[in-house]
């Protein structure tokens, strides 16, 4: 269980996360959505102790993230940020092996090797295993980073816009894999998503943020409605239904004729 209480982050006079309290019980996919600058990434970074908070407390399975030793938390929770530049040259396999660092401190055991292989297989990276990551396509690289996080084998996985810069094919494939992490491997996933429709189809719970605060929280069906979309994104979005899930047709706005026919 991840518990946040009164979490606040300020940059000078700007409060980017304003006294957020939230509880994420174990299991399932929780999607953080909201407009740019809503504080989603900052909140996720604070849970993953990449960013110190100014006020409040975050506990993961009862452990205070700002106090607990980094290597203890690294076996419970992993975080993958949006920009994943790696400063040195690594192959896919070497990158994935780094995921075992919290367990083996750099000396890989046979068990670590098994985890590495499983992660590479799970993300269908076997044919690229020996390739340097700076010579992969965007989709392959994103999968390599997810494999690293998977290899870390933590109960909690935080992902910051993992679908960014991916085309339709790779975005849907990657999101499908993330869903499988929750369904098949029983991980608790907290994911920042830009495309509300991915949240609609793959998330169990949608938490919407705006101006540093949580403005809506519920199942996709409860949150993704024309009314709440207008409130969250300041935009009138026609919401349809497809395969029993709400679909926000935000891409049609700007050419009004499409939904005028409804």
């Amino acid at each position: 269980m991840i518990e946040l209480s009164g979490v606040t982050k300020r940059y000078g006079p700007n409060t980017v996360v304003n006294s957020v309290s939230l509880t994420v019980p174990g299991g399932g996919v929780t999607a953080l959505v909201g407009p740019n600058g809503a504080g989603k990434s900052s909140l996720l970074s604070m849970i993953g102790r990449l960013l110190p908070m100014d006020e409040g407390e975050i506990r993961v399975d009862g452990l205070d993230v700002s106090r607990i030793a980094g290597d203890v938390l690294a076996k419970k929770l992993s975080i993958l940020r949006q920009e994943n530049q790696v400063a040195v040259r690594l192959t896919v396999k070497e990158l994935v092996e780094f995921g075992r660092f919290p367990h083996s401190r750099g000396r890989l055991t046979a068990e670590d090797g098994r985890h590495v292989e499983e992660a590479i297989d799970f993300l269908e990276l076997a044919e690229f295993a020996g390739r340097p990551i700076d010579r992969l396509s965007g989709g392959q690289r994103q999968r390599a980073f997810i494999a690293m996080v998977l290899c870390q084998d933590t109960d909690y996985v935080l992902l910051d816009e993992p679908l960014n810069n991916l085309d339709m094919h790779h975005a849907s494939q990657t999101m499908g894999l993330i869903r499988r992490l929750a369904t098949e491997l029983n991980k608790t996933i907290v994911i920042v998503l830009h495309d509300i429709n991915f949240a609609s189809y793959h998330a169990d719970r949608v938490v919407a943020m705006k101006d540093g605060a949580i403005v809506a929280d519920g199942t996709p069906r409860e949150i993704i409605t024309g009314l709440s979309m207008a409130e969250i994104f300041d935009l009138e979005v026609p919401v349809h239904s497809y395969a029993d899930r709400p679909v926000a047709a935000y891409f049609a706005i700007g050419s009004r004729h499409l939904h005028d026919q409804d």
Partner: peptide, 15 residues
């Protein structure tokens, strides 16, 4: 781990 970048290092449990 530090060599691959600050955020990755922290994620991997390095102080």
């Amino acid at each position: 781990a530090v060599a691959i970048g600050r955020e990755h290092a922290i994620n991997l449990g390095v102080n």
